[in-house]
Amino acid sequence: MQIHRKLMFKPLGLALASAFLLAACGGNEQQNAAGQSAPAVTVLTVKVESVPVASELPGRTAPYLIAELRPQVTGIVKQRLFKEGSVVKAGQVLYQIDAATYQAAADSARASLARAEANLDAARLKAERYAELVKIEAVSKQANEEAVAAMKQAQADVGSAKAALDRARIDLGYTRVASPIAGRIGRSTVTPGALVTANQVAALATVQQLDPIYVDLTQSSTELLHMKRDLESGKLQRVSGNAVPVQLVLEDGSLYGAAGKLAFSEVTVDQATGSVTLRAVFPNPRGELLPGMYVRARLAQGVQDNAIRVPHAAVSRDPKGNATVMLVNAESKVEPRVVKTAQSLGDQWVVTEGLAAGDRVIVEGLQRVRPGAPVQVQDAAAASPAAAPAK
């Protein structure tokens, strides 16, 4: 009987031991779960500061100077004296038109001038002789007057012959088509042997000066009026200096290496688009900017006081499209906040409404939090030095 009772109590003891072990494990899991319920987040304590206000405007590049080469005389193209796509100098001869007929015309005009000058010499001598003879009444006054008139006519013939020679020389010079500006030349529309006509519609080639280069921008008249009112009210402070600096963002999102400046602003609003054209000029020594490229330009237009900057990663959009951030309040709990962003500066948003100095904005760990939940806070300023050795 005693042996039977011992056998009965042995399974019961094992069951009680197992229960205690399970209870202990369960308690540890609850303690671990309680410890893991407050996720760690990194916060940025924001501060009020003055930031530059810039407008990012779309635009297209345009040549600083452009010249379309057209012949001013008719003839056959004998030579093309440039390489397509090369850089040419001002005054460099690019095409040679057959000059034989124009050379002959110049020679003929030169001979006509020589004949006119010879006739003038004879008429002058006769007029001078008659002027002496009329004093002694050796010739009539009428004969003297006719000699003077003949001399004046000979002078006019010389002037006409000189003009004809000048015109012939000009036409002869036009057989050498030169570039009026320095720049890069494009493709040629004609080849040697082609017939070209004076002042034809089609250009032989186009030369463009690309250093410096223009960037034509468009800004809506509404934005322009809003900026002017903010400047007048004192909400925006004017940028020091008269020149307005401009930064260029290329099509691939990279910043152009050289800064430009605003050249002028159009005084008329485009009725079709409601926008104003702005023109900026940029140095282009390496030829990176080509005419017709789409770019975006950032224009510094003032200084915004009492502004706050937060990283892009900290700002999200709610279902209504409002910009929101997650804060950590005094109770170390997550609190959503709707904010108003004015512009983007680098990797940060400029916030003008919704935040105050000292607010703690969550910048890392947003995917692990929800509104009202407690969190473990780590300051971004304290986390950055620790992250440096890991690089």
Rank of each mutant, 00 (worst) to 15 (best):
A131I: 09
R167D: 11
E132Q: 15
R176Q: 15
R110H: 09
A150H: 05
Y174K: 11
V77Y: 00
E68W: 02
A143G: 05
N119D: 11
L120D: 04
R187G: 10
A131Q: 14
V73H: 00
A114H: 04
G186R: 10
E146R: 12
I136R: 13
D171Q: 03
R167G: 06
I170G: 03
E146L: 12
G173P: 08
R80K: 15
I185V: 04
L120A: 06
T101E: 13
S112F: 02
G91I: 08
Y174N: 15
A100D: 04
K141F: 10
R184E: 14
I170W: 09
R167Q: 15
S160A: 15
A168T: 00
R110P: 03
A163F: 06
S160W: 10
G173Q: 13
D121W: 05
D121H: 08
L172V: 05
E117K: 02
Q103Y: 01
A150Q: 09
A178L: 11
G75C: 00
L81W: 02
K152I: 09
D157K: 03
N144P: 04
V148F: 09
A109D: 01
V87T: 13
K141P: 06
L81I: 07
A100N: 03
D166Y: 04
Q153I: 06
G173S: 13
R187P: 02
T74H: 05
V148I: 14
A127P: 06
I170L: 15
E145A: 14
I76M: 02
A118H: 11
R169L: 12
K135D: 15
E84F: 10
V134M: 14
K89N: 11
S108R: 01
L81G: 08
I97T: 00
